[in-house]
Write a protein that binds this DNA or RNA. Structure first.
Lengths: 142, 142
DNA sequence: GCTGGCCTTGACGTCGGCGTCAAGGTCTAG
DNA sequence: CTAGACCTTGACGCCGACGTCAAGGCCAGC
């Protein structure tokens, strides 16, 4: 399997695969003409990386999982180093959730206060103008 | 007040203030020698920006608040454009929280499954090895 | 007058995970 | 033989919010 096919199989790009190789994850064998050659096992490694990336793990955090699979273990998380990364990421997520939740509540409170003030300026009847801009919906974590 | 003092008052840096000015927020008057001159009102604007930044608003999102204050309103969120930004940010936060929460649960589930598998390999008694790496605690949202 | 601390502009560096060219090599179908 | 669909390496671009350095101007105190 060559790089384009592997990328297609995993729903990613050749640039991404070359990047992973440059980072030392997902090394590639070469055919006589210098082309990268991959097999089904590489596809497993790649899918492991992509799954973790989708969960917000950064590349370095995926390394233990990849090495675990390369060492012949049945799953990427069959090794203690991978479990440590799970726990570390879980702690990150909990901390992040707590902070975001607090921020959310404070913003909601500020909004409520401000809406009350505006309502006080127009005691007759505050029209509920609710048009949200609707295209700012990118997450910082994605 | 010169730039260094304003930065100190707001707990930020001169670089940040020059950056804000380059972006068109927080313009500065100049003294005869070309130094930037600020007053207490600029400190208010700056504090408004910093508060919103701490809440994860990006610079562009702070603009309506700053313009609202510059227009003489008592608070940065006394203007409808600011309220729209509040609502937009609130929607972002809710979506982000929902996604992060789902990811958290899935990671926790994966961890639990993996720990069970490891436990099955050592039925005698799994030692609880809980040393977390402890320096990965930066948030993506900060 | 000279040192040291402030200020100025300009420009390049940072971080992650790639996207996007550019210039060229390789192989296959027609 | 040639087009075109793949592949190679290399290198610069991107995003946001600044950090950091360079080279030089301004001003207060000794």
């Amino acid at each position: 399997m060559r790089i384009g096919e592997l990328a297609a199989q995993a729903g990613t790009t050749t640039r991404t695969l070359r990047y992973y190789e440059s980072r030392g994850l997902l090394p590639a064998r070469r055919t006589g003409n210098g082309y990268r050659a991959y097999d089904e096992e590489d596809l497993r490694l790649l899918r492991q990386i992509r799954t973790l990336q989708d969960f917000g793990f950064d590349l370095e955090q995926t390394r233990p999982f990849v090495e675990c699979l390369q060492a012949g273990h049945p799953e990427g998380d069959s090794c203690p180093a991978s479990l440590d990364v799970y726990r570390s990421r879980l702690a990150e997520l909990d901390e992040c959730l707590a902070r975001l939740h607090e921020v959310r509540d404070r913003v909601a409170a500020q909004l409520a206060r401000a809406e009350l003030r505006v309502g006080a300026d127009h005691p007759g009847g505050p029209e509920p103008h609710c048009e949200l801009s609707a295209n700012h919906a990118q997450m910082k974590e994605s």
